[in-house]
Design a binder for these strands. Structure first.
Lengths: 104, 104
DNA sequence: AGAATAGGTAGGAGATTTCCTACCAGTCAA
DNA sequence: TTGACTGGTAGGAAATCTCCTACCTATTCT
């Protein structure tokens, strides 16, 4: 769980997740084409994502396909839950204030 | 937005947010009491949270009250949206598979 | 078998993070 | 005004992160 937040802290890794979401599973080369970065660095980012459980790796021939594994993101969503209630309450307060205003 | 993910990457900062959510606004000393950490380090964490827009600071006398500002978390929630659809689809797939099994 | 391809590991440089001690500035109380 | 209190800044050490180049392994194609 802690690893998930740490994994999400890096923009390249968030972009990797986005690519995997949009295009489905991809070999490393195809992912790498979209970054101005050497492959070893990409490999490192993919390893971090894998350690956080955010992607899976499946070797096929000499390629390795990476796929999104969104379950840990669900934990992030659950973590957000209590805060979500808080900001909804704030919005409700705001609405109440606005409703109370004249000329509206 | 990037700052928000970076701010959430640290466990101490997530704990600070949790304390502010549970107890409402608090002066630094009261927050510091719950960490085994010197105050300058806490100050630094609070600064990061403030820069990310996750807390507000209000000086009253010689104290500074920090309060949760959950709006940036809403952006995180929005960012999660597309992935949430993905994992719900996965759950639906799983349910379908389970429904298709005999002996159930 | 030999060459090409996919993608990893090793190791290191530089930047950033996270903690610390020492000290400073503002506020309040005697 | 002096002393105590709150909480910040300055600066630095150690750890970690993010990138790199060089090289290795496994697979496939000829």
């Amino acid at each position: 769980m802690a690893d998930v937040f740490a994994a999400l802290a890096n923009p390249t890794r968030r972009e990797l997740l986005r690519l995997l979401l949009e295009r489905g599973e991809q070999p490393v080369q195809q992912l790498a084409d979209h970054f101005d970065m050497r492959r070893p660095s990409l490999s490192e980012h993919l390893r971090v994502l894998k350690d956080a459980g955010l992607v899976t790796e499946q070797p096929i021939g000499r390629q390795r396909f990476y796929a999104l594994r969104p379950e840990p993101l669900r934990e992030v969503s659950d973590w957000l839950g209590p805060y979500e209630r808080f900001w909804r309450a704030r919005l409700a307060d705001l609405r109440e204030v606005l409703d109370g205003l004249p000329d509206e």
